[in-house]
Simulated scan of single mutants.
Amino acid sequence: MLSVKKNIPNILKTLLIIGFGYFFWLMIKITLEYIPSKADVGFLMIKQTEIGQQPEYLYFFYTHVYTSIFVLLSGFSAILRKNFGLGNFHKNSGKIYIFLILIFAAPSGIYMGVFANGETLSKISFVTLGCLWWFLTFMAYRLAKQQKFKEHKQWMWRSFALTLSAVTLRMWKVIIVYLFHPDPMDAYQAIAWLGWVPNILLIEYLITKKKI
């Protein structure tokens, strides 16, 4: 019985890697739609008004798309840490993760949030998400510089919870559309919040209970 209990964490870790690998592949497929960069493909098909009125929109959009995939990868790599024999890799992955979010991914996400579909509710959600993402990541960076590594770890988990909104948003979209068949804009307003609020609440619960 004891050996079975010892094996459970390893099984969960393996499932975590497999699950992340699957969704990471889906994100890569989405990203590949925008290579080479075009103004009339995928999500951009419904953003022609913004592209026409705000020429810089495309630059922010592609900055966000191209950096976010590396944010996901570097963030997950940093989380693997010493448990997977990647202790030295953790620090470098964390630096890449923080740099990409603070300089590129979060600022471009905030800009895009201003022009989000779904009217005011969606705009508020995505702008709030971008601002929180930047702030939580900056706090993690600041605490690492101060060598407060326990607190740094907690803030990195908070940041990564929001990073995963790229995945959970799409999961919620599939669930809501399949179960309720809502109007597209109603669905978009719902997933705008469901994509990240449950993530951060779960992480706060786990931190409070000292599970991570």
Rank of each mutant, 00 (worst) to 15 (best):
M1I: 05
L2S: 09
V4E: 11
V4I: 13
K5T: 01
N7Q: 04
N7T: 00
N7F: 02
K13D: 09
T14F: 14
T14L: 14
L15G: 12
L16M: 14
I17P: 09
F20W: 05
F20S: 02
F20K: 04
G21Y: 06
G21Q: 07
G21I: 04
W25S: 06
W25N: 01
L26K: 10
L26T: 06
L26I: 05
I28E: 00
T31H: 13
L32G: 00
S37V: 15
S37M: 15
V41S: 11
V41F: 13
G42Q: 04
G42S: 06
G42Y: 08
G42C: 06
F43R: 11
L44C: 04
L44R: 05
I46D: 13
Q48R: 07
T49E: 13
E50F: 04
I51W: 10
I51V: 13
G52M: 08
G52I: 08
P55S: 10
P55W: 11
E56R: 05
L58E: 00
L58K: 03
F60E: 03
F61K: 15
Y62P: 10
Y62I: 10
T63M: 14
H64T: 14
S68P: 07
S68K: 12
S68V: 11
V71Y: 07
S74G: 02
S74V: 02
S74D: 01
F76M: 13
A78K: 04
A78T: 12
I79S: 04
I79C: 00
L80F: 12
N83M: 06
L86T: 12
L86Q: 13
G87P: 01
G87S: 14
F89K: 02
K91P: 00
K91W: 04
N92E: 03
N92K: 07
N92Y: 12
S93Y: 03
F99K: 10
L102S: 07
S108T: 15
G109H: 13
I110H: 09
I110L: 12
Y111N: 09
Y111G: 03
Y111D: 03
G113T: 10
G113D: 08
F115P: 02
S122T: 10
K123Q: 12
S125D: 03
V127H: 02
W133A: 00
W134N: 00
L136H: 08
F138P: 00
R142P: 00
R142W: 09
A144E: 03
A144M: 04
A144Y: 01
Q146M: 06
Q147N: 12
K148H: 11
F149N: 14
E151F: 02
H152Q: 13
H152N: 06
K153Y: 04
K153F: 05
F160W: 07
L162D: 03
L164I: 00
S165Y: 02
L169R: 10
M171P: 01
M171G: 12
M171H: 06
V174D: 09
V174I: 14
H181C: 09
P182S: 13
P182E: 12
D183P: 05
D183F: 10
P184E: 14
M185D: 09
M185C: 00
Q189S: 11
I191N: 15
A192N: 14
A192D: 14
W193A: 11
L194D: 08
L194Q: 07
G195C: 12
G195D: 11
G195I: 12
W196D: 05
P198Q: 10
P198W: 09
L202K: 08
I203R: 07
L206A: 13
I207S: 05
K209N: 07
